[in-house]
């Protein structure tokens, strides 16, 4: 509890400190891959039969979700249980050395970490998982109903596209590309038209950067007309019409380029 305005700076600094401490903790918790691998082998040979080779449970509980594992630091909680077993639940004791316990703990912490990090798609997501479509059907859609050929060409901008991006990035960019900023023409009450690259547009203001590089803005109620030309508009208009088959077929086609 504080009662001085001067303390507001210290609040700010505390947040900075918190962010650093979180980053540091994450770095500190990064497990040693060699220890994890030794621990995995140890776990599979001694524990996997009951707890599952990946520790997600079998006849004995899932250890990724275990309170004991989540409270453990370097084997301090796991060690006594591994050595003494849980005879009331049918678990025998294992005469592990300190090093073996540390390794098994490292493996289990790596498994819980994998669960914590599971809300993502790895950047190196394999092509084989994504390549479920029909390239010929994708090509037909590209040239036909999809309207893709109106702006894109396999011999032009899309030449070698499959080599420019990872498969996952290609699928994302295909659906929602980053592209050139929209251009805009603002017609003033005088009838003069100002053209440029769109900088901002909301319900109240429009702003552009003109050919000379100057930023210019207007209240929307002070201009006669605003015409935006967004080169990516077709992608957004297409999205609600796409089936999953379309997505996978076009992707398969782009992977041939």
């Amino acid at each position: 509890m504080v009662s001085s305005k001067m303390k507001s700076l210290s609040v700010c600094l505390r947040f900075v400190a918190l962010i650093f401490s979180v980053l540091f903790l994450h770095a500190a918790e990064s497990p040693d891959p060699a220890a994890v691998e030794r621990g995995r082998k140890q776990f599979v040979s001694s524990c996997g039969f009951c707890h599952g080779d990946d520790a997600t449970g079998n006849r004995a509980p899932d250890l990724v979700r275990s309170a004991l594992v989540n409270h453990d630091v370097g084997g301090d909680q796991l060690g006594p249980v591994i050595r003494a077993g849980r005879p009331d639940k049918g678990m025998p004791g294992f005469p592990f050395t300190d090093a073996q316990i540390a390794d098994v703990a490292a493996f289990l912490h790596a498994r819980t970490r994998e669960a914590l990090m599971s809300a993502r798609v790895p950047r190196d997501y394999p092509l084989a998982k994504l390549l479920t479509g029909n390239a010929e059907a994708g090509k037909a859609f590209f040239n036909g109903a999809g309207g893709c050929a109106q702006c894109h060409s396999p011999a032009g901008d899309l030449k070698g596209i499959s080599h420019k991006y990872t498969p996952l990035m290609l699928q994302h960019n295909m659906l929602s590309p980053r592209g050139p900023a929209p251009t805009v023409t603002v017609t003033l009450p005088s009838g003069d038209a100002v053209k440029g690259t769109l900088e901002h547009l909301d319900e109240f203001e429009v702003a552009l950067r003109d050919a000379d590089g100057w930023y210019r803005s207007w209240s929307r109620d002070k201009v006669k007309d605003i015409e935006v030309n967004d080169p990516l508009a077709a992608h957004r208009e297409l999205m609600p019409k796409l089936t999953d088959a379309d997505v996978h077929n076009i992707f398969a086609y782009l992977e041939t380029l």
């Binding site: 599952g52 997600t56 609600p240």
Partner: peptide, 24 residues
């Protein structure tokens, strides 16, 4: 809001087991 949802889990899923990518 359009998004593409990936299932990444193999074996018993823990946590999220996948993620979606916001498109627009």
């Amino acid at each position: 809001l359009w998004s593409i949802f990936y299932l990444t889990a193999e074996g018993k899923a823990e946590g999220w087991g996948g993620r979606d990518q916001n498109l627009w």
